[in-house]
Design a protein around this nucleic acid. Sequence first.
DNA 1: CGGCTCCTTGATCAAGGTCAAGACATGTGG
DNA 2: CCACATGTCTTGACCTTGATCAAGGAGCCG
Lengths: 233, 233
Amino acid sequence: MDKKFSEPICYNCVVKEYSAFKHLSRYEAENLFLDKACKLYKKGDIIYHEGHRLRGVYCVYKGKIKLYKTGSEGKKQIIRFAKPGDLIAFRSILSDEVACTTAQALEDVVLCHIPAQVFINLAKTNTNFSMALIKLSCKELDESNKFILKLAQKSVRERLAETILLLIEYFNTDNQGFINVSLTREEIASIVGTATESVIRLLSEFKKDKLIDLKGKKIKILDMKKLEKIANL
Amino acid sequence: MDKKFSEPICYNCVVKEYSAFKHLSRYEAENLFLDKACKLYKKGDIIYHEGHRLRGVYCVYKGKIKLYKTGSEGKKQIIRFAKPGDLIAFRSILSDEVACTTAQALEDVVLCHIPAQVFINLAKTNTNFSMALIKLSCKELDESNKFILKLAQKSVRERLAETILLLIEYFNTDNQGFINVSLTREEIASIVGTATESVIRLLSEFKKDKLIDLKGKKIKILDMKKLEKIANL
DNA sequence: CGGCTCCTTGATCAAGGTCAAGACATGTGG
DNA sequence: CCACATGTCTTGACCTTGATCAAGGAGCCG
């Protein structure tokens, strides 16, 4: 495989400061660099499958990833996303469980793979690092619990409005105000937990009401206040 | 307050072996005993409120607890339960966040309160203990993510069947085969994420179909296989 | 015996899922 | 560069699920 990217050097990596790795010492980061392996994934590639045993943790260097669970009828439910600086699969590694989601590249992605034992050793020897990991998983647990509340009590309309707001918060906007991520209507539906057709209908309704603008897969917020009101936060 | 219970002694506590505290040394457990405070809560008492800052972690010694989030219209969504041996609130303490749920006693409950700093110090100094905590929160995260999938994709009927199975797994049955917990129909509805009336109608349907037996608030499984089939696991 | 809370049942209706069909867009190989 | 195939988007029609409202019954406690 020809690499179209320069392999990041951990102790110097641009994403290090945004990740739990910021707690590593120079020495630890240098060692990490010796043990990791960097790899490019094309858009649509599966990074790992739900239910499979993983050999290590991935640190996202470039690109965006969706993590989803698959229901009994094969229907997908997106649980969360990952972007540069995020770690994925570390919960499975630390708790010695099989992967609880499937990770798939939303665009071309570069990941650094850290072998399980290396990662676990870091967590065991560097208290600041392990506390950062605990905080990460607690935060994510909180996110998931909020999601539960949302699914259980809100209408599809409210959920879609909230989802748009969450997407903008997580991915930010480009210089034209469009959310920095391209999702199909089906993918949006599998975040919101609804049918693709419902997403389409509601998005065009939002557009008609001048709350958002649509340009292909790109979404731009026109009226944040009203959206928040619909989301009923 | 007169205590109608004998205060448990940590290093000797019957629940210690079922909790993350099993990783404590004798010395650590003895110190823990000096720092903790034990308290009785009556059925219905609120132990802490969502959004409040907590001063420590609770270890459940006796009784059952529900943990719920409250939605925008005041509707409650039960996120999980706790029983003897479980720790509650430790995620908020470790991640230094306000409580993300409200904890309420389902029956008379005895809790031991461990001050935040004592708990954090244990987590920082005892690697086995902190790894156990990480595993706990990862496991809970997995539970929450499964819950999301369930809410997003399953019918109320399927969810109720699955909920009954989860209750039996978590609380076990008494010698007559009834699930060891008494929940109102409303509480069951706020686990399943539906209206009280729907729970009532479906429970009587399950009873009519000889899947379960009902005796007041007590539920007994008659046909596990069929329930599992309905739950569509 | 009121006054609670909880349970139950029936009637109604809207939200949203499903199905079907076609438009549009994108990429592929000839 | 075109023709075709495939994936995505859109719209309309229909119908099921389950929420809501209303009213009454059952059990429990001071």
